[in-house]
Write a protein that binds this DNA or RNA. Structure first.
Length: 485
RNA sequence: GGCCCCAUCGUUUAGUCGGUCAGGACACGGCCCUUUCAAGGCCGGAAUACGGGUUCGAGUCCCGUUGGGGUCACCA
């Protein structure tokens, strides 16, 4: 079996949207699973839509996700150049070869004539569409004469007039289309440049691409591609068309609509590994029930035949859950490292992060959840609602909380071992002495220290984090407010 | 509109050659645990778009209907 070579061929037109990234992932995995070659080709022939810096975004995104390419613009390779705009010289010869073989022909029709024909058809109530084949059977002599006269021309692919054209797709199976449906599409434009369809086929062949992996918007043009391979006598690739990633049931996820791109998600605090893991599962599923995988596991189990046929809606909730899964699996050290900048964006006073980590990790699904959770450390809302002290489960209210805090205050003041264990061991026995549950005593402490009901830890945990001085200060303020009721 | 493709819980999916209560995950609800909130554990509600066939038996095969997507450029 010949070598597996796949390519990711994006247009550098802006940010990387997640559908694109998924296609890249699938192409990457297909190559790696077979110990093949993964190629990056930049398709920048649409100068109108080029965006500065977009190529770097492609490089960075792929690199961030460990999707390294073996051949590409920056690393070279035996089949370059890998930037399409640098390959423009090679296509005319291939188009002429096709004319030579009778599979393509010169067309001298002007845009005006084409427009007129379209108008006529419209007027006659016919379906407007295909080129009418006006130049399909020009004599050799006439072609020679008009070329010599310098008339502008394009080269069109000559489609069969009858029968069916078929191709096989790894996910969609055998697809047949009536030859009469196919248009004599332009291969070489009047400026001598190839159309995308033509350049793509020629490039894929020259780069020895064995598996063509792309979005299923190309499904309808696949028969034409196949015909091209046949006309040249080239070996056809395995086609793998992927269904689109949808924003909702009706529209695709797209950057034009301002939908979240990969970069946006990262900015929002999603881990790139989690994003990729989620994308892997969007439209594809492995054998067992497992959902979180290392890159090695992905490569090992990958099978493109398991790609789904129908569109899949991007579900941010599920991404959140996968992200939370990744965070939970991190070591405290790893988590601390990535969480630090998010925490320090709102906590300026020097604090010991370690007592927080164990409590923060399971409470944070995405990193941007962090700031609001630790905000209270430096900026507590002093006017918090005293009704927060009411808790059904612990049978507390403003009055019992005042009692609890008054009991805790001297104990806290007398505690010298200001550690998790030290503070808890000092406070917990009070509950026993008073004959109450731990929650009755300590729930109010959390409210007094944070001014909110959702905190990254219990009352004594918070005390340790904000330090003895602030703890006493806040407890006394709480006692004052509650006494004033 | 022509052509092509698709159709299982709200979402994402499993269901390989038709044959065990249609399984998992997310979300949702409940319970347990508990110094808050989470996390975790347990339990629960939730789907084969519709109509016809074929068959002893269909989510699975066939036809139709409906719904949705894609594509019909000297764009990529």
């Amino acid at each position: 079996m010949s070598e597996v070579r796949t390519r990711f061929a994006p247009s550098p037109t802006g940010y990387m949207h997640v559908g694109n990234l998924r296609t890249a992932l699938y192409a990457y995995l297909t190559a790696r699973h077979e110990n093949g070659t993964f190629i990056l080709r930049i398709e920048d022939t649409d100068q109108e839509r080029l965006v500065d810096g977009a190529v770097d975004i492609i490089y960075d995104t792929l690199k961030e996700n460990g999707m390294t390419w073996d051949e590409g613009p920056d690393v070279g390779g035996d089949y370059g150049p890998y930037v399409q705009s640098e390959r423009m010289g090679i296509f005319k010869d291939y188009a002429l070869q096709l004319v030579e073989k009778g599979s393509a022909y010169y067309c001298f029709c002007t845009e005006e004539r084409l427009a007129a024909v379209r108008e006529e058809m419209k007027a006659a109530g016919e379906t407007v569409g295909k080129y009418d084949g006006h130049c399909r059977n020009l004599s050799k002599e006439e072609v020679e004469r008009r070329l010599a006269a310098g008339e502008p021309y394009v080269i069109r692919q000559k489609m069969p007039t009858e029968g069916v054209v078929a191709f096989d797709d790894l996910v969609y199976g055998h697809i047949e289309v009536d030859a009469s449906e196919l248009e004599d599409q332009i291969l070489l434009k009047s400026d001598g440049m190839p159309t995308y369809n033509f350049a793509n086929v020629v490039d894929d062949h020259l780069m020895k691409i064995s598996h063509v992996i792309r979005g299923n918007e190309y499904l309808s043009s696949a028969p034409k591609y196949n015909l091209l391979y046949e006309a040249f006598g080239w070996e056809k690739p395995v086609y793998i068309h992927c269904p689109p990633v949808m924003k909702d049931a009706h529209s695709k996820l797209s950057k034009r609509n301002g939908d979240a791109s990969y970069q946006d998600l990262v900015k929002q605090g999603y881990l790139s590994a989690a994003i990729v893991n989620y994308l892997l599962l969007l439209g594809w599923s492995p054998k067992g029930d497992k959902e979180i995988f290392t890159r090695e596991e992905m490569i090992e189990m990958w099978n493109p035949a398991w790609i789904n046929k129908s569109p899949a809606i991007f579900d941010i909730q599920k991404l959140r859950a996968i992200n939370a899964g990744y965070i939970n699996r991190m070591s405290d050290e790893e988590f601390t490292e990535i969480a630090r900048p998010w925490i320090e964006s709102v906590v300026k006073s020097p604090i010991e992060l370690s007592p927080l980590v164990a409590n923060l990790k399971p409470r944070c699904e995405i990193l941007s959840d962090l700031p609001e959770r630790v905000m209270f450390i430096d900026h507590m809302n002093e006017d918090y609602d005293l009704a927060f002290y009411r808790n059904k489960k612990f049978k507390t209210d403003e009055s019992t909380s005042l009692t609890a805090l008054k009991a805790l205050e001297p104990v806290l003041e007398g505690t010298t071992d200001w550690t998790r264990e030290g503070v808890y061991n000092a406070c917990a026995p009070i509950a026993q002495e008073m004959g109450v549950k731990g929650g009755w005593l300590l729930y109010p402490l959390g409210i007094a220290l944070a001014g909110t009901q959702a905190t990254p830890g219990g009352g004594t945990d918070l005390a340790v984090v904000i330090g003895k001085e602030r703890t006493l200060e806040r407890v006394r303020k709480a006692i004052a407010r509650l006494s004033a009721l």
